[in-house]
């Protein structure tokens, strides 16, 4: 969950909107883990999602882009900060964006 938050936070700062699979790749976690986290964050109102604008005249499936809500940003920053600190003590599994 925190890895997903970290990726969304990075994206928020860079004013980007990653789609689900981009988050899976960035976190290097399995699909079900990441999508479960996204579902929970969306249910809690921390994350909003929007569909890709379909190209006119195509039947291609649309991607879905996820963004952290501004209100959740402060809490996410605190949580990710805490986790980075704990992990720097443990020295393991750095969160995305800390390298």
């Amino acid at each position: 969950m925190l890895e997903v938050l970290a990726v969304l936070l990075e994206a928020f700062t860079a004013q980007e909107q990653p789609h689900g699979w981009a988050i899976v790749k960035a976190t290097r976690r399995s699909g079900p883990t990441v999508y479960d986290a996204l579902d929970r964050l969306e249910d809690a109102g921390w994350v909003t999602a929007r569909w890709e604008d379909p190209l006119p005249g195509t039947v291609k499936a649309r991607r879905r882009f996820y963004t952290l809500t501004p209100t959740a940003r402060a809490e996410a920053m605190a949580l990710v900060g805490e986790m980075r600190q704990a992990r720097s003590v443990l020295g393991s599994n750095p969160l995305p964006g800390t390298a």
Binding site: H19, G20, W21, P32, Y35, D39, W51, E52, K60, A61, R62, R63, R64
Partner: peptide
């Protein structure tokens, strides 16, 4: 994975986009 709700529809399209 999600039954027949809205979330199944959403995830189905998202993963189909990835397959594409």
């Amino acid at each position: 994975r999600y039954g027949r709700g809205q979330r199944a529809e959403i995830r189905s399209e998202e993963l189909s986009a990835f397959i594409d």
